Amino acid sequence: MGKTALVTGSTSNIGAAIAERFAAEGAHVIVSGRSAERGGQVVRRIRDAGGQADFVPVDLDGSRERSDELAAAALGLLDGHLDVLVNNAGIFPGGRTVDIEPDVFDRVFAVNVKAPFFLVAALAPKMIASGGGAIINMGSWGARLGIPGTAMYAASKGAVETMTRAWAAEFGPAGLNVNAIAPGVIRETAPDAEERGERLMRGTPAGASGRPDAVAAAAVYLASDESSFVHGTVIDVDGGRIGVAVVGA
């Protein structure tokens, strides 16, 4: 790869896997998130493996100021040149629609929708000016499959997938490839078979939750030159949950 990349929410799980995989491919990666301890651990793993990484602490609260601060800090560490932006940071409070408080709703849309919106606004022009690159957003299978108790989160991820297509139209002609990944149930370790996420994966070809490396592999493809003809696409990395039903499972 040999590129520069910023991965938001990369102190654990999917984000950390993407950051470490990018670094293994030769990218200089900016790890970002709220926890300096966990971010430092990801950076140390990357450096111990011979890769390049730096950590930028940030709480992406949906304000333009926080997104601008992260953009400036990342560009400063990368000598002003960013090739790949991965909008992975997000929160997932579930609950019945009638139980959701307005402040929780606002927080979900601030983190999941407004933060990547303003980060793209800050970074896309600079990426285009320096030759183009790739933006990868994190959608969700829940945006296209109705599940009780997920209306708020699913709506936020539906917005992300919609923004992906709009940004592909807006920035694609200028040299930015904008795509998304929609993970299924992803766990760092296998939980109990009766856990809700595991039950949701029954009846799929995979039959169980996936691991973060599966999403990281898709991100490497979308960040690479091999995906230069791919625009506005959502890649489902979900064990077949959206498109396939295993009869009799």
Rank of each mutant, 00 (worst) to 15 (best):
I30V: 15
I30H: 03
V31N: 01
V31W: 00
S32C: 10
R34T: 11
S35L: 13
S35W: 12
S35I: 14
S35D: 14
A36M: 12
R38K: 15
Q41E: 15
V42I: 13
V43I: 07
R44T: 14
R44W: 04
R45H: 14
R45T: 14
I46D: 00
I46L: 10
R47H: 06
R47M: 11
R47V: 15
R47S: 11
R47K: 15
D48R: 13
A49R: 06
G50E: 08
A53V: 09
A53Q: 00
D54H: 12
F55A: 10
P57A: 15
D59G: 10
L60V: 04
L60Q: 02
L60T: 03
D61K: 02
S63T: 15
S63V: 11
R64M: 12
R64H: 08
E65Y: 07
R66A: 15
R66M: 14
R66C: 14
R66L: 09
S67F: 02
S67V: 07
D68K: 13
E69Q: 14
E69H: 14
A71N: 00
A72H: 08
A73G: 12
L77F: 07
L77H: 03
L77Y: 02
L78C: 07
L78N: 07
L78A: 07
L78G: 05
D79Q: 12
G80V: 10
G80L: 05
G80C: 05
H81M: 09
V84L: 05
V84T: 11
V84M: 06
V84K: 00
V86S: 06
V86D: 05
N87Y: 02
N87P: 06
N87L: 06
N88T: 05
N88Q: 13
A89T: 05
A89E: 01
I91W: 00
F92Q: 08
P93A: 09
G95C: 11
V98E: 14
V98A: 13
D99Y: 07
I100Y: 00
P102V: 10
P102R: 07
D103S: 14
D103I: 06
D103A: 15
V104S: 09
F105C: 07
F105A: 13
F105T: 10
A110V: 10
A110W: 04
V111N: 03
N112K: 02
N112I: 03
V113W: 01
V113C: 04
V113Y: 01
V113E: 00
V113I: 11
K114G: 06
K114Q: 10
K114I: 04
P116Q: 02
F118Y: 13
L119G: 00
A121S: 05
P125A: 10
P125F: 06
I128T: 14
A129T: 13
S130V: 03
G131F: 07
G131A: 14
G132I: 11
G133E: 04
A134H: 03
I135K: 03
I136R: 02
N137G: 06
N137D: 09
N137W: 01
M138R: 04
S140F: 01
S140R: 00
G142L: 08
A143W: 02
A143N: 03
R144K: 13
L145M: 10
G146E: 08
G146Q: 06
I147P: 05
